[in-house]
Design a protein around this nucleic acid. Structure first.
Lengths: 186, 186
DNA sequence: GTCTATATTAAGATAGAC
DNA sequence: GTCTATCTTAATATAGAC
């Protein structure tokens, strides 16, 4: 395997796929090297902190997805219900229609660093805030909007667990169908 | 450490705690040995299949908890809402008021065996069936009861993720407060 | 039935050539 | 900036004494 020169985002996407399938502790640097076409030593050149630092970068990449496909689309002017329907569509794609894990779940298992935990918490907080804002715009009180936002994200995370364990995408898909109502109808 | 003779259930409870904290891949036999007071060789005597077989036994133990504290209490005659309130109380204890992982999430990450996946699916199916039955008894249609049961469990699993990532037990606690209504009020 | 001791493999990590 | 080669540690797993 000669000088592979794989790009940063391509590298992180491939590594994210491994983490989402196997978890942080279940993924080795050898697997990452094999999946990305880099040798282990090169991983340490790019990320001197080793697996912890790679996980941080992956969390950052996941945060970028979230910003691009969820937070930004909800931050502009528009009809809340229509916006949430669009976001639900993006989430379906992101989560492979209920067949993959969520980065929050997978990377928050003990084994990661303190900084990783902080990054995940920041991403989740931003997500909640974004959902709460759209619920607020739909006419809910601040408190209720916040509660619905948490409920919606819990429903998403939990239905992913159900779909994966049952081997049936329907629980996740039903959650996506119900998302616009949950966030915009008091 | 002389002949420790730790009992089966005590062994599994201590091992379950490790898995729930660190996941399957993140927990080593050395850690299990240290936590239970057995040497690694003794683990192989009890569970010749190694970590996979231990995980299976832990899944069985978790299934027993579920049967004892959730499924059995809901299977007897009684006022549904009152029964669910009692179950919610048990779940609070089981999940350390929102500070621990759920076995379904943790053990369903890739790395476990086929048989383990099948066992987890069976346990989850039984749980859903139990919740659906109590919702049905409260007057819902079969289809709606089933949907509410899945919704409730997804909410539980998901709110555990939120509570853990945010470091705040409130999302899980709110879910427990809402559980009786979700399962018994159409 | 548990122990001590060890074999074997793979993990994370580094040195130094190119 | 990536490679080959290697180090060190820790993982799973087994042999054999008691």
């Amino acid at each position: 395997m000669a000088h592979s020169m794989v790009g940063e985002t391509e590298f992180l996407d491939k590594t994210a796929a491994l983490f989402l399938e196997q978890g942080f502790a279940g993924t080795s640097l050898s697997q990452i090297a094999a999946a990305t076409g880099l040798e282990k030593a090169s991983l340490y050149y790019r990320y001197p902190g080793g697996k912890d630092e790679i996980a941080m970068a992956v969390a950052g990449r996941i945060g970028s997805w979230l910003t691009e496909f969820v937070i930004q689309p909800l931050a502009i002017e528009g009809v809340p219900e229509k916006q949430v329907r669009e976001v639900a569509k993006q989430l379906r794609t992101l989560y492979g229609d209920g067949t993959t894990w969520c980065g929050l779940e997978v990377l928050s298992l003990k084994g990661g660093s303190e900084a990783l935990s902080a990054g995940l918490k920041a991403a989740l907080t931003a997500w909640i805030g974004s959902f709460a804002a759209v619920a607020r715009r739909s006419g809910m009180t601040t408190a209720m909007a916040r509660q619905r936002a948490e409920m919606a994200i819990a429903q998403i995370e939990g239905s992913l667990v159900l779909s994966r364990v049952l081997g049936d995408p329907k629980p996740f898909q039903r959650t996506m169908d119900a998302l616009p109502g949950l966030l915009t109808k008091a």
